[in-house]
Amino acid sequence: MNDKKRLNSYEDLPLVLDVADIQRIMGISRASAYELVHTPSFPAFRRGRLINVSKIAFFEWMAKGSETVLRSDK
């Protein structure tokens, strides 16, 4: 995804995200984005040297994480 492009909606995102997309969506540093994609529970996959994430899997992962946080607060 082009670094200059603003992310205005879910539909604006490509079907397959890269580390830079994850960084921009989450508002985290490049190092944090790479640390995240190497986390065992994160839905990343490799295509050669590139690390990619399905847009659907990424948002499902985020939703599942937020449910866990909400449940632990009770």
Rank of each mutant, 00 (worst) to 15 (best):
H38R: 13
E67A: 06
K4H: 15
A63H: 10
V53G: 00
K64W: 10
L50Q: 10
K5V: 14
R6W: 09
F45V: 11
D12C: 09
W61V: 02
M26D: 03
R6I: 11
M1A: 10
F42P: 01
L13W: 05
R71S: 12
M26C: 07
K5A: 15
S32H: 11
M26L: 13
M62W: 09
K64H: 11
F58D: 03
E11L: 12
R47S: 09
F42Y: 08
F58V: 04
D21W: 00
V69P: 05
A31Q: 12
A44S: 13
R49K: 11
A57T: 09
S54D: 15
P40M: 06
A33E: 01
K64L: 09
N2P: 08
R24P: 00
M26Y: 07
L15Y: 12
G65E: 05
M26A: 02
F45E: 10
S29K: 07
D12K: 05
S72H: 13
K55P: 01
A33C: 07
S54E: 13
G65L: 04
R71Y: 11
R6S: 13
K64N: 10
G27F: 06
F42K: 02
D12A: 12
A44Q: 07
K74Q: 14
G65T: 05
S66T: 08
E35V: 07
T68G: 12
N2C: 14
F59C: 06
L36M: 03
M1G: 04
D3E: 15
E11R: 14
P40L: 08
L36Y: 01
I56E: 15
E67H: 05
G48Y: 07
G48K: 08
K4Y: 11
A63Q: 10
L70A: 15
A31H: 09
G27T: 05
